[in-house]
């Protein structure tokens, strides 16, 4: 049972990690807690649904429950969600950033944006559930006592590849370096000639794309509904802060820790307390490292 819980935890954690990367960038590069990020997850899932509705999920390929169409849908949704994130920035957040509003105005505005985005989904698609595919897979015993679905193994693999690629991109590309410079010190980055607006645009685009990916994976296990992203919101924040804002690796490790904490906790205490687990881990970490596991200690604010 322990092995199974660990496997489940890693899977949950991988999906959380994809969403948490965007939250983490938001906290450090854009300098605010973007409560609307979870809605990008939902929108990503529903945009992929639009594609799937026209193209179909594809015939099951090998052991997987879907075909290439779903992958195409994910790319489609990733790009559109990235653009959506950027458009929201232009409409709301950039205006606030450029006015001398209190930094927390951004947080409240994000709250409002989240309400609007979530309920537009309700208005368009209704409250009911949707599915990409009606297939139901039976888990394979990958290790003694550990069962996983082929889809889940695929999700884990793809997440790993994408995160690794992102890490390389951020480390070696010009945009990546500019983003890291912004994360460390916005004013210094500006002085050094970093194009702030361009970095902001890329940050939104990447966050949105990864959120959409998390959304599609979430929808694959197994359903889409308007609150799917919102229900994940706190786990995303816990993971991002746990890892340390602005750190890609931190967000991934944070996501895995949150996933593991949820899944392992039920072995010891009532599952009724499961939703509190990410926070308890978070509090514990923050108590000893107020900047998170991989976060840089901040200077005076």
């Amino acid at each position: 049972m322990l092995g199974q819980a660990i496997a489940d935890g890693i899977l949950t954690g991988a999906i959380i990690a994809l969403g948490a990367i965007g939250v983490s960038f938001g906290l450090q590069i854009l300098r605010f807690a973007n409560f609307a990020h979870s809605e990008l997850v939902t929108w990503g899932a529903y945009l992929a649904l639009v594609f799937v509705t026209f193209a179909g999920p594809g015939t099951p390929t090998g052991p997987l429950s879907f075909g290439w169409q779903l992958i195409a849908a994910m790319v489609f949704a990733g790009v559109l969600t990235g653009v959506l994130a950027w458009v929201v920035d232009i409409l709301v957040f950039r205006r606030l950033r450029n006015s001398d509003a209190h930094p927390l105005s951004m947080v409240f505005a994000a709250f409002g944006v989240a309400l609007v985005m979530r309920h537009v989904v309700v208005l368009i698609w209704g409250h009911g559930s949707y599915f990409y595919t009606r297939e139901l897979q039976i888990a394979l015993e990958v290790l003694p006592g550990i069962r996983m679905l082929p889809d889940q193994i695929f999700i884990l693999g793809l997440t790993f590849v994408v995160v690794a690629a992102m890490h390389l991109y951020l480390t070696y590309s010009r945009t990546g370096m500019a983003m890291r410079a912004m994360a460390e010190s916005p004013s210094l980055a500006r002085v050094c000639g970093v194009q702030v607006e361009s970095v902001v645009r890329w940050t939104w685009f990447i966050s949105g794309g990864l959120a959409a990916m998390a959304g599609v994976f979430l929808g694959l296990t197994p359903q889409l509904h308007p609150e799917m992203g919102f229900n994940l919101l706190l786990a995303l924040f816990a993971a991002a802060i746990l890892g340390g804002a602005g750190s890609l690796i931190g967000a991934v490790v944070g996501g895995l820790l949150v996933g593991l904490a949820e899944n392992l906790s039920v072995l010891f205490i009532s599952p009724g307390y499961k939703t509190a687990m990410p926070f308890l881990v978070l509090l514990l970490v923050l108590f000893f490292r107020p900047q998170g596991l991989f976060g840089e200690k901040e200077g005076s604010r």
Binding site: I241, G272, L282, L283
Partner: peptide, 28 residues
């Protein structure tokens, strides 16, 4: 004592988490 030193948004998430935990205790 445990949270007051945190930066603004971290404090928010921490206190939010504590409220969720308290609500779960009243439920369970």
């Amino acid at each position: 004592l445990a949270t007051i030193r945190l930066r603004g948004d971290y404090l928010a998430i921490s206190t939010f988490g504590i409220a969720v935990t308290i609500q779960l205790v009243t439920l369970n």
